[in-house]
Write a protein that binds this DNA or RNA. Structure first.
Length: 427
RNA sequence: GCCGACGUACCAUAACCUGGUAAUGGACUAGUCUCGAAAACUAGCGUCCGCAAGGACUUGUAGGUUCAAAUCCUGCCGUCGGCGCCA
């Protein structure tokens, strides 16, 4: 949510910024906001005036009571006021709801460096890392490879849990744990604090961290409860400090989370239907930072640097892109994606993303930090370190050998009982 | 899930029974004093409206009763204790 003060004082700037996003968002909503907000403020003033009258009379009654004088005329006078106040309050509430709905539809302000573009094909490539290898044999898809080595059971998973689910088995299940364990050690060495969050959060918290369409397309709701399964640990961990004012001295707060992530993938019908590339459930280690307003851009670079270092250490070939206006979504002010090379698919695919959400999440969540000039909203940042299923597919596609075995990156071997490869003809 | 107790601001506590508009400490910030600090004193210390003067709101939360609710009544949420169930 955008800061109301900003909308009031810098409406033109906001409209201009929203216009950069093309037709997906309507800058004239800002005008609607200003009209409703003005109406709300005027009515609030009037209602406050009525309340003041009521309070004065009430005080007078108290005084007369003490002097044991007749209070009945004042009571007659006072009786009329609550009704009018109530009518006003109902109207105020109605206006408030309208304004809130409107605010939900206004996206975050974009950083100037965000490239303009229609969709992910127009993301701007910043840099390539590692080398694209060309194996001298025909690669198996990750699905075939998993089948050959008995590493997953997708049919039985579908039988009991539906599409886009999986049982991981044997060495591949171990490899997933190795990736996660390595990621945890990696972040711990960087002095980030490990957080293991609740895997469901309530509506209020969720509204603070994501945009409304996610409630339709992404989030699973728990029946009969005001709770949603989390789509990433970013969500509970960012919402963690809801309604709190942090001490400026304790910023930046550098955290990382591990969670299972649940996603409906509605609207992805027909995309990546085979295997474990796009699934309803996967595990992820995520970096999260709460920053003051000055340092967030520097910290955004730190997060992407960590992620790059991590994928480099796995020996993958990937590229960093600056996500364009048509692909960035509502919440982030700037987003980098890392896209790994998938040789079977012959494509670069997203393997992680790194966002600075500036004060968009903290404004709705009410997370501030103390400051001599008055408290300010914190900036929130998040970045993937590793998402299990995408990373596993990348390893299976990139590190497979002719006999169907898969080489284990050196950094993971110590988490795999020193095994240098898994699978192959003997399996 | 059932029964009971409780929920006051950053923290701690009072007012609740008997309705009269949040008292008091501590912490924190600034100022005075000091070479500096501590102590002491003064002011500030939550949200909203207003150019300001000022006003409104805030006792977990949403309602109800009342001229008036921290206080009385009801629903919900949470915490703690007991019972039940349980990895």
């Amino acid at each position: 949510m955008l800061d109301i003060t900003l909308l009031r004082e810098q409406a033109e700037l906001v409209k201009k910024n929203i216009s950069r996003r093309g037709t997906a968002y309507d800058p004239s909503l800002v005008n609607t906001f200003l009209t409703l907000d003005k109406e709300w403020r005027e009515l609030k003033g009037k209602t406050d005036e009525l309340r003041r009258e009521r309070n004065t009379i009430t005080l007078e009654i108290t005084k007369l009571n003490k002097e044991k004088k007749d209070i009945s005329p004042l009571i007659q006078k006072a009786k009329k006021l609550p009704e009018e106040i109530k009518t006003n309050e109902e109207h105020l509430h109605l206006l408030r709801t309208k304004i809130d709905t409107l605010l939900f539809r206004l996206p975050n302000l974009l950083h100037e460096s965000v490239p303009i573009g229609k969709d992910d094909t127009e993301n701007k490539i910043i840099k390539l890392f590692g080398k694209k290898k060309k194996p001298p044999f025909k690669l198996l898809s990750h699905v075939d490879l998993m089948q050959k080595n008995n590493w997953a059971d997708l049919e039985r998973a579908a039988k009991i849990s539906g599409s886009r689910t999986y049982f991981l088995k044997g060495d591949l299940a171990l490899l997933e744990q190795a990736l996660i364990h390595y990621a945890i050690d990696f972040m711990t060495k960087k002095k980030y604090t490990f957080i293991f969050p609740p895997h469901f959060i309530n509506r209020k918290a969720y509204e603070g961290v994501t945009d409304l369409t996610d409630f339709e397309n992404v989030l699973y709701k728990i029946q009969e409860e005001d709770l949603y399964l989390i789509a990433t640990s970013e969500h509970p961990i960012t919402a963690m400090y809801m309604d709190e004012t942090l001490n400026e001295k304790e910023l930046p707060l550098k955290l990382f989370g591990l969670s299972t992530n649940f996603r409906k993938e509605a609207g992805a019908h027909g995309k990546d239907t085979k295997g474990i590339f796009r699934v309803h459930q996967f595990n992820k280690v995520e970096q999260i930072i709460f920053s003051d307003q000055k340092s967030s851009w520097k910290l955004h670079e730190e997060l992407i640097k960590n992620e790059i270092e991590f994928f480099k250490s796995l020996g993958l070939h990937f590229r960093q892109v600056n996500v364009c206006t048509g692909d960035i979504g509502t919440v982030a002010a700037k987003k980098y994606d890392l896209e790994a090379w998938y040789p079977v698919q012959q494509a670069y695919r997203e393997i992680g993303s790194c966002s600075n959400c500036t004060s968009y999440q903290s404004t709705r969540l009410g997370i501030k930090y103390s400051h001599p000039e008055g408290s300010k909203y914190v900036h929130t940042l998040n970045s993937t370190l590793i998402a299990s299923s995408r990373a596993l597919v990348a390893l299976l596609e990139n590190f497979q050998e002719k006999n169907g075995s898969v080489k284990i990156p050196k950094v993971l071997q110590k988490y795999m009982n020193q095994k240098k490869k898994i699978g192959g003809n003997h399996a």
